[in-house]
């Protein structure tokens, strides 16, 4: 697995027989999942799938191309609003509106990529942060988009079939998620993907060997925005209602956390990061009710802290998990995975 002997081995999507086997098993499991799970579990997995899409897009930008973004909630919002607006005002069907929304978002990504050509580090961070904040501000102002009142999602219809249940939405979202994951893996293995990596490692060196910086940096922003926009468009149907409030700075930060906690520059890492962070966000809300921990926390709240502030423990735990993962494994969850794999391969030595 580690030695690449020729070019074709490098661009191959799957490296070995077992990988093909496990891929088939995974796809089978994903297909069978809605048959065995209940509606709430499917809903959770839908959320995770959307976050996976966004995390993949962001990882392409942050992990592969080395550009930071604190404004992906803006693209998320653009995707969500464009999808709904195209369906409600232009009466386009969903399967057209969603990719179109993705391209609209990509166009904005391209625009944001332009100042990014000259900016790096904190300067880029603040520019993207400003972008995210401005987008929600403008959306709140436009009455076409419901202003601050928000926008109700129309019923989801696909080729004449009404999709109303969580399992139905799963059937729409999961294939998109799988296709986009496959697409990204493909992209990173091509000339374009290698150009991104070259830009990340040293943009001047990349330029010297003939990588067109303007093209590849803006392209990275555009592709990343496309993924995020698609994620946003799907999110609008999961929520059923969107308002500018839904896309705050915290959302951007969570996306970034998914990517870094999962593992920069790794597709498997993005998936793991999205799964972990989404799951934590949902589960930690109930931390006070856990069997053993709950009473201890309640007692602690009574003694030292305040009882009404108890739910804030979720932030403490959340922050701690993020910090610990980065401290002990700079490659994030993906690093853990690699290390576990190596440990078992060389076991018992």
């Amino acid at each position: 697995m580690d030695m690449k002997r020729d070019y074709y081995e490098d661009i191959r999507l799957l490296d070995s027989g077992p990988q093909v086997f496990w891929l088939v098993v995974l796809l089978g499991a994903l297909a069978a999942f809605p048959l065995v799970a209940d509606s709430y579990q499917i809903y959770t997995v839908n959320l995770i799938a959307i976050n996976v899409i966004v995390a993949l897009g962001l990882n392409l930008l942050v992990g592969y191309t080395g550009q930071i973004s604190l404004g992906h909630a803006g693209f998320f919002a653009i995707g969500a609003y464009s999808t709904l607006a195209l369906m409600l005002n232009a009466h386009l069907p969903f399967f057209l509106a969603l990719p179109l929304a993705g391209f609209i978002s990509a166009a904005f990504g391209f625009l944001l990529g332009l100042p990014a050509l000259r900016l790096e580090g904190p300067y880029l961070a603040i520019a993207t942060l400003g972008f995210g904040l401005t987008i929600t501000q403008i959306l709140g102002r436009l009455d076409v988009f419901g202003g601050h009142m928000g926008l109700q999602a129309p019923p989801l219809e696909l080729f004449g079939l009404k999709v109303a249940s969580d399992a139905g939405r799963y059937a729409v979202i999961m294939p998109i998620c799988v296709i986009l994951t496959w697409g990204l893996r493909n992209l990173t293995k091509t000339r374009v993907g290698r150009a991104f990596v070259a830009v990340r490692d040293s943009d001047i060196a990349a330029e010297c060997i003939g990588v067109n910086l303007t093209y590849y940096k803006t392209l990275a922003f555009a592709v990343s925005a496309f993924y995020t926009g698609i994620g946003g468009g799907l999110m609008a149907f999961i929520l059923g209602f969107i308002s500018p409030h839904t896309f705050n700075v915290m959302v951007s930060i969570m996306f970034l956390a998914m990517v870094v906690v999962g593992g920069l520059g790794s597709i498997l890492g993005s998936v793991m990061g999205a799964v972990l962070i989404t799951w934590l966000q949902l589960e930690l809300a109930r931390i006070g009710e856990l069997p053993l921990v709950g009473p201890v926390l309640t007692e602690l709240s009574n003694q030292v802290f305040t009882l009404s502030g108890l739910p804030n423990v979720q932030y403490v735990v959340f922050g701690l998990i993020m910090v610990l993962i980065i401290i002990f494994e700079p490659l994030g969850l993906y690093g853990f995975w690699i290390r576990t794999k190596i440990y078992w391969r060389t076991w018992p030595f």
Binding site: S39, T44, L47, L239, F241, S243, Q281
Partner: peptide, 21 residues
């Protein structure tokens, strides 16, 4: 009682969780 942090995203999850679980 569930905390949603005034985040519609989480409210929806909570409503489903409470009603279905």
């Amino acid at each position: 009682l569930r905390d949603d942090g005034y985040n519609p995203n989480r409210t929806k999850a909570i409503a489903k969780e409470l009603y279905e679980q």
